[in-house]
Structure formats: structure tokens, C-alpha cells
């Protein structure tokens, strides 16, 4: 850790708790000294008290519908537009600009947007095709050590729509079924991070550390 990072302020991280594996994220975030507190966020009041947000795995349609019907959607969208946010699996889908395939609700699924990518939902198939595989993730601490990628009915990044702004953070290291080696599974754009896999289903907190440092840097730059 550099001197500069050590001096940075601890941040309060919220995890969107409308549905899905939010408790798992909270557990891993709480292992980081950079995080003062990790809390569940369900409404506009709770989101106003955090510095950065994680949108967990779960069902993206479910989360979007709940947020919309409880009147939380506008506050959520505004937060994501203006604060560091990381989406995992369902969260990645919600942060993407559009869905290329695999969406239903007759194409009516609401998205928060922000990441200039298009998403292929359920890219690997059904649960039978869910798998775990090691990944090289750009910028992780101890980057040579593979990160355990847990893919559960996972989406993939089908296309990068804004190549000048979106950075690729991780790719598949080999073919899985019809999904070829090199398929993009994690990206970063400004204050947003998205991953198709589930770091919250590992005991490895390096992805969480990566996001929290990214959020600290962004906050230091933009909220002086």
C-alpha cells in the first residue's frame, strides 16, 4: 500500500439489498480496513448516507422491478451516475447500456446504464453450465495469483460500445461451452466497475479491495 493510499479516508460502502447475495458482499467488505462500515441499502434515505455502492448478484429483473415500484429507482440511478458503483453479475447487467440477448420481459427490462457495453444474459446456458475458473484480473494486488472466478448463470460482455472509455479488466482464460477464450468478463469505466462473476462467493477479497481503492481515488479526485 502506498503512503498516499494509507492517508485516504475510510469510506462507507452500501450494498443494494433489494434481492440477492448482498450479505455475502457485506461480509467481504467488512474485512477491509479501508471500509469504515458496509451496510445494506434498500431506499433513498439509506443510499444518501454512503460513499460507494455495490450491486450484488441476484436477479436483475427482480431488483429493477422492486426499485421501480418502491419509488427508489430515481435516487438509485442518480447515485450510480455520480458515485463509485460496482455491479457483480446481475449488478453488471443493471449497469450496462443495453442487453444484446437473453433478456425477456419482452425487451422491457429497465437498466441503470453507465457502462458503455452491451450484455449477453445467461451466456453460458442454464445452471448445469455454471462453473468456477481462475482468472487474471488487471490491477489486482498480487496479480500473478489467479482470482477464483465463480460464474453462476452468468452474463458476459458482448460488445464494448465506447472503446475509448471502457477498460477491459478480465477475460476468460479458456473456452467454456460455446463461449470462447478471451470473452470479456470484467470492465471499468470512470467510477464504474462491472464483473460477470461473483467475488462475493469467494474468500478472496482482492476484487473488493480493488473496487474500494478505485472508489477512494475517485472520491479524492472529485469531492474536494
Amino acid at each position: 500500500m502506498t503512503q498516499e493510499q494509507q492517508e485516504q479516508k475510510q469510506i462507507r460502502v452500501g450494498v443494494l439489498a433489494l434481492q440477492g447475495a448482498f450479505a455475502e458482499h457485506i461480509i467481504l467488505l467488512n474485512t477491509l480496513p479501508q471500509v469504515s462500515e458496509a451496510v445494506a441499502v434498500r431506499n433513498a434515505e439509506e443510499i444518501s448516507k454512503i460513499d460507494a455502492l455495490v450491486i450484488p448478484g441476484g436477479e436483475s429483473t427482480t431488483m429493477a422491478l422492486i426499485a421501480e415500484r418502491s419509488g427508489f429507482w430515481p435516487a438509485l440511478q442518480e447515485f450510480v451516475r455520480t458515485h463509485p458503483t460496482w455491479g457483480t453479475c446481475a449488478g453488471l447487467i443493471l449497469l450496462s447500456e443495453c442487453i444484446t440477448s437473453g433478456g425477456t420481459l419482452k425487451g422491457d427490462q429497465k437498466l441503470l446504464g453507465g457502462l458503455g457495453i452491451s450484455i449477453k444474459r445467461n451466456a453460458f446456458g442454464t445452471q448445469k453450465e455454471s462453473f468456477e475458473a481462475g482468472l487474471h484480473v488487471e490491477g489486482l494486488e498480487d496479480a500473478k495469483r489467479l482470482f477464483p472466478g465463480v460464474f453462476i448463470r452468468a452474463p458476459v460482455i458482448d460488445e464494448i460500445l465506447k472503446p475509448e472509455e471502457v477498460e477491459v479488466v478480465a477475460k476468460l482464460e479458456q473456452d467454456y461451452g460455446k463461449t470462447p477464450k478471451g470473452t470479456i468478463v470484467a470492465v471499468k469505466q470512470g467510477h464504474l466497475l462491472g464483473s460477470a462473476f461473483h467475488p462475493e462467493l469467494t474468500h478472496d477479497n482482492r476484487m473488493h479491495l480493488f473496487f474500494v481503492r478505485m472508489a477512494q481515488d475517485w472520491i479524492a479526485k472529485h469531492q474536494k
Binding site: 440477492g20 468456477e132 481462475g134 453462476i152
Partner: peptide, 22 residues
Amino acid sequence: NSEVPQVASFNVKAGLAQMLKG
């Protein structure tokens, strides 16, 4: 967690249930 590719491990079986929570 394993770094070796694994299909249908207990972690992904139980993991889907974790995604259904709430």
C-alpha cells in the same frame, strides 16, 4: 476456492441458492 476450472461444484450449486435470497 479452486483456481482449476470446475463445473457443477457444490459452490456453484449452493451459490445459485445464495443468489435467490431475499
